[in-house]
Write a protein that binds this DNA or RNA. Structure first.
Lengths: 202, 202
DNA sequence: CCATTTAGCGACCGATCGGTTGCTATATTG
DNA sequence: CAATATAGCAACCGATCGGTCGCTAAATGG
C-alpha cells in the first residue's frame, strides 16, 4: 500500500511522528505514549512508526530531544538577544510564562519536562538520565544569568545564583500546575508578583 | 485455597492493599498502578484485590484518600497543636520538609499528590477532580494560616495569603523534585532559605 | 444447627501492549 | 537500465491490561 518514500519524505515522516509524540506525551506522559496509538493518530502502521526508532525508550528519548528543541526555540531564543544579566533573565521568564500559557499547540498537556521529571524521578535508565540532564542544563542557564546580574550589581551582592534558580524552577512548576489543574487566569500575575520579589534589586 | 476471611480480616486486607497501592502509585503513578501487579505483590489473585474496589478508578480514588490521610497525619497533626498563625505555619512547613525527605516508607517515589496532579492535570474524570479537590483543600489550609498570621501582625499587613500559599506550593514541588531527581542533600536547606524570605516579618 | 453471606481464588475474556518478520514497491546508486 | 537499499505495511507473537464469572469454604445470623 505504502511503498518506499524518498529519504526526504522519510525525514518529514520522522518529524511528524515526533511532533505528534511531543503533544501526546505532554498529555499522557512518556509512558502513556504508545506506539499503536501514535501510529493510528498518524494513519500509519506500528511497524512504520517503530522503523524510525528502534524501541520505545529510543522513541521517548527522541521525543525529549524534540521537546527540548521546541522549548529552547520558544523561550531561550527570545531571551538571548537581550543584555546578559537581569534583562535577559527577565525576558526568559516572560517567554517562559508565555510558553506555559499559550503553547498549547505544541504542548497541549502542559510542560513536558515537568511531566517527565515527575514520571521518571523514581526510576532509573536512560530516559530518567536524559530528563535529569535537561533539567540541570536549564538550571545552569538560569544560574549563569543570575550570576551575571549579581556581578553587574543588578541583584544584591549576597545573592546565591543556585538558590534563585532553584526557586525559579519551583515557581514555574506552580504556574504549570495552576494553568493545567485549575485553569486559573490569575496564574501569570501571581508568577510575576513572585518574580518581582525574587528578582528585586534589594 | 483461600476461603472466606472474617469481616475484620477483610478490613485488614483492604488496608494492606491500600498501603501497598499508595507506595506503588508514588513510584509508578496512579495509572502505572496495575491490579495484576498489586495482586502479585500481595500474594493475592486479581479477583481478590478487585473485590474490595469495584473498578480501577475506584481503587485510584481509594488510594488517594488513603494517601491524604497519611499526609494529614504526618504533616498537619504535627502543626495543629502549635499557635495558629506563623508558628503553626512554620511547624507545618517543617513537617512538610520532613515528609518529603524521610517518609520513603509510605511514599517511596516521592509526593503522591505532585505525581497525581501532573499525571491527571490534562485529563478529566473523577480521579482528576479528586486530585484537584485535595490540592485546593491543602492550599486553603495554608492560606488560612497565612491570613491569621497577617492579622496577628506576624506578616506584613499587605501580604496576599493566596499568593503566599501559591508560592509555598511551588517551593515544595521544587523540593520534591530536588530530592527525587537529584538526591540533592542541600535541598532542605534551600527550602528553608526560601521560607525565611517568604515568611519574613517584613 | 442450619441457611445465608461473602472473602478470595482461578480460569477465562477481548483489547492492547512492545516488538518481530516477511514482503512490496519505489528511490537511489552504479 | 540493472542492482540494491529501504520506507512503510500487514500479520503475527507472547505478555499484560482491566474486568467477569462460577465456585469454595468459612464466618455469620436466625
Amino acid at each position: 500500500m505504502s511503498p518506499r518514500r524518498s529519504v526526504a519524505e522519510a525525514r518529514l515522516t520522522r518529524e511528524r511522528i515526533l511532533q505528534r509524540g511531543v503533544a501526546v506525551a505532554s498529555v499522557e506522559g512518556l509512558e502513556g505514549l504508545t506506539i499503536g496509538q501514535l501510529a493510528a493518530d498518524l494513519g500509519m502502521s506500528k511497524g512504520g512508526v517503530l522503523g524510525h526508532f528502534s524501541s520505545k525508550p529510543a522513541l521517548q528519548l527522541a521525543v525529549l530531544d524534540a521537546a527540548a528543541d521546541a522549548f529552547l526555540r520558544i523561550v531561550w531564543r527570545r531571551a538571548e538577544p537581550e543584555q546578559p544579566g537581569l534583562p535577559r533573565l527577565r525576558a526568559a521568564c516572560e517567554a517562559w510564562i508565555d510558553y506555559l500559557e499559550h503553547e498549547r499547540g505544541i504542548f497541549p498537556g502542559g510542560c513536558l519536562f515537568t511531566t517527565a521529571a515527575v514520571e521518571f524521578d523514581a526510576r532509573s535508565g536512560p530516559v530518567r538520565d536524559t530528563v535529569a540532564r535537561l533539567h540541570k542544563l536549564w538550571r545552569r542557564l538560569l544560574a549563569t544569568e543570575v550570576r551575571t546580574a549579581v556581578t553587574a550589581g543588578e541583584l544584591p551582592h549576597d545573592t546565591d545564583p543556585e538558590q534563585v534558580a532553584y526557586e525559579l524552577v519551583g515557581l514555574f512548576m506552580a504556574l504549570n500546575q495552576e494553568i493545567q489543574l485549575f485553569a486559573e487566569p490569575q496564574a501569570a500575575q501571581r508568577t510575576r508578583n513572585a518574580l518581582n520579589r525574587l528578582l528585586a534589586a534589594g
